[in-house]
Amino acid sequence: MLDQTSDDAFVAFDRVQKSYDGETLVVKDLNLRIGKGEFLTMLGPSGSGKTTCLMMLAGFETATHGDILLDGKPINNIPPHKRGIGMVFQNYALFPHMTVGENLAFPLEVRGLGKSEREEKVMGALDMVQMGEFAGRRPAQLSGGQQQRIALARALVFEPELVLMDEPLGALDKQLREHMQFEIKHLHERLGVTVVYVTHDQSEALTMSDRVAVFDDGRIQQLAPPDVLYEQPENAFVAQFIGENNKLNGTVTARADSTVTVDLPNGLTVDALAVNCGDVGAATTLSLRPERVFLDQSAPNRTTGHVQELIYLGDHIRCRMSVAGNDEFVVKVPNAAGHRHLKVGETTDVSWHTEDCRALDAS
């Protein structure tokens, strides 16, 4: 895994800014390093700047300020077709009048490869995505999942060192999307190609990536491997955007080396890890994952919750309750032998450990 400040990056954004109107920056002073062979996902809500960054890397948008480097060389002034980058889009972008084989051969023809070499590479790429028998079909004769496989094969057929993917699975149904996530992940592992992937789907980002760059308001809010993003969010936006999260707003009343004491509006006092909060008197947002809450008094931070809603999800029960003034407080109760069955309307003990509760910026 590559450190963000390393100079041996395969892809580098150096102080990159982008404005469409000369006033509002949609990308603000982006510094990002991506290692060779890495799978990096740009994740964020609509308008956060992630797709603009991908389009600047592809060459379809130009940076207002700063440099973009590929393998150490600036590419700001190199047109898209000369960057040698593979692209996969949500809408597949296949040529409807060409067969599958012709679609894959096109980027090879542009690069001047002979017919026999083109045919060999096309069949190799189709076999790679298990679509070898579909070479003679047209895109309209394929399902959405099959078209996406062909789009993926076309992006890889000329053996680029970098592949960019912009919401490539967004048009697929849930089951096929999840299947394709693993297929792309395994292809990446087998080929060792560098992938920059854009999505707004946080579960997709966690499933596929070596590292995830979480974007909001034109900036990277946090850049880390998936488990670190989920377990150790650095601010309230990341905590709320990645996975399900319980949010409790309060005021810091005491501070130790690594922990703070926080008063909540309903009079409850809790201890939390001091991650990104101010000193005594400052407002803070506490972040607590639903699976880290116990329905007993076994952990140091203790209170009660009033059960509002129960949703059966197979392996667990999603219990929404009112806790410490938050009516959207969620506890995930494992659907396993020995776990008690809650009822809507009942009051129950809840508790959590200090190290599982993170004191972040006030949101």
Rank of each mutant, 00 (worst) to 15 (best):
D3S: 13
T5D: 14
D7N: 15
A9S: 14
L25H: 15
L30W: 06
G37R: 02
E38S: 09
S48P: 05
K50P: 03
G66W: 01
G72A: 05
N76Q: 12
N76H: 04
I85V: 14
I85R: 00
N91H: 11
A93S: 14
E109T: 09
E109D: 08
S116M: 01
G124F: 08
L126K: 10
L126D: 07
V129G: 07
Q130F: 12
G132R: 14
E133N: 10
F134A: 05
G136V: 07
G144M: 10
Q146E: 10
Q148W: 08
L156C: 07
V157P: 07
E167S: 12
A171E: 15
Q175R: 15
Q181D: 11
F182W: 15
L187H: 04
E189N: 09
D201Q: 10
D201C: 10
A213P: 00
V214N: 06
G218S: 01
Q221D: 00
E231F: 01
N235Y: 04
A239G: 09
G243E: 12
N249D: 14
G250A: 12
T251Q: 13
L264A: 11
N266P: 12
G278W: 04
G281Q: 15
G281M: 14
A282G: 14
A283V: 14
T284K: 13
T284E: 06
R289Y: 04
V293A: 06
V307W: 13
Q308R: 15
G314D: 12
V323Q: 07
V330A: 10
N335M: 07
A337S: 15
C357T: 07
A362M: 01
S363H: 11
